[in-house]
């Protein structure tokens, strides 16, 4: 695929035009990626026509730490391309596509070091309800030109537009990555460590993921060990599932009373993976009113990914 992005407005290659033709201006459509989060926000209804997003890396600029990529590409392919230049992105690899990862908006386990998905998407291009290609954001790492369409896309479940291409911010892969296990108090650990990549707690054991320059990881390890015996382990713990909770980090102190069954809490973040589902999170009436208008203005006929509701994500 060829495309250029220099000088003012974004220009797209033939893959995006084909996708726009596939989506068209009429009839219910749903975008199928790898279907790893097919049930997120509700099942498809109205028997939508299935379409697939374009694939391929459009332009990777390692020196700028940005990559422009068609969103049907898998996260694994993205990771492989970035790794060749010692880089990675905020998107989690759960077997899915770049587009799926963006519109679902779940963060990576190591969000403390990789950053949140909502902060990684610099520019988006999508096919609108009218079948037109629309773009928002910009190619640079810093940009406040106009309204933040990219952030509107993250977590939208494709209900406002069918995502075609994104520009993502990338970041360097740290020199060293090591996992440790301890019985020390996870909240004291979070206070003591400067910048852990992850602190995962199951109520008894805490797994610490340390990344960075080798000597820094050693220094962090010394701080952790001062709070309790610490042993290096090969890999992170088994993640319980299939459910994902999102809690204020301060609530994690009482997480054992909140969740039945097995769970694993990300200290300082607030994500909890659990065997039990999180009770429904109701949106307030005023937020629902804005949501409803947003859907009405972006997709008046309700044809884009019908059945999906970002409020039930």
């Amino acid at each position: 695929m060829t495309a250029t992005g220099t000088g003012g407005r974004l220009r797209h290659g033939p893959g995006v035009a084909r996708f726009a033709a596939d989506v068209g201006p009429e009839g219910p459509v749903a975008v199928a990626g790898a279907r790893t989060r097919w049930h997120s926000g509700g099942e498809p209804v109205r028997e939508p026509r299935l379409v697939t997003a374009p694939v391929g890396i459009v332009e990777y600029k390692p020196d700028e730490m940005t990559i422009r990529i068609a969103v049907g590409t898998t996260v694994a392919e993205l990771d492989a391309a970035l790794a060749e230049h010692g880089q990675r992105s905020a998107l989690p690899d759960r077997g899915g596509t770049v587009g799926g990862a963006v519109v679902v908006g779940e963060n990576d386990r190591d969000v403390l070091s990789r950053g949140a998905v909502r902060n990684a998407v610099l520019q988006v291009s999508y096919v609108s309800s009218e079948g037109k290609v629309v773009s928002g954001g910009g190619p640079t790492v810093k940009n406040v030109s106009g309204f933040d369409i990219p952030r509107l896309t993250v977590g939208s479940l494709g209900t406002l537009g069918c995502l075609a291409e994104v520009i993502l911010r990338t970041n360097p892969i740290p020199a060293v990555s090591r996992w440790f296990e301890t019985r020390a108090d996870p909240f004291a650990l979070f206070d003591a460590l400067l910048a852990p990549a992850a602190l995962l707690w199951d109520g008894v054991t805490t797994w610490i993921h340390l990344e960075g320059h080798g000597p820094d990881v050693e220094a962090e390890l010394v701080r952790a060990s001062a709070l309790g015996a610490t042993a290096e382990v090969e890999s992170p713990p088994q993640m319980p599932g299939p459910h994902r909770w999102s809690l204020p980090p301060a609530q994690l102190r009482g997480v054992g009373d909140l969740i039945d069954g097995r769970w694993l809490a990300s200290i300082g973040v607030g994500t909890v993976l659990a065997t039990a589902p999180q009770p429904g999170r109701e949106l307030s009436a005023s937020v629902t009113a804005v949501h409803d208008r947003m859907k009405q203005y972006f997709d008046p006929t309700g044809r884009l990914n019908p059945g999906r509701d970002p409020g039930r994500r």
Binding site: G155, S246, V269, P310
Partner: peptide
Amino acid sequence: LDPEPAGLDLRGV
């Protein structure tokens, strides 16, 4: 205050 609030990222926009 939770990491992945439900709904669209209205705070972000």
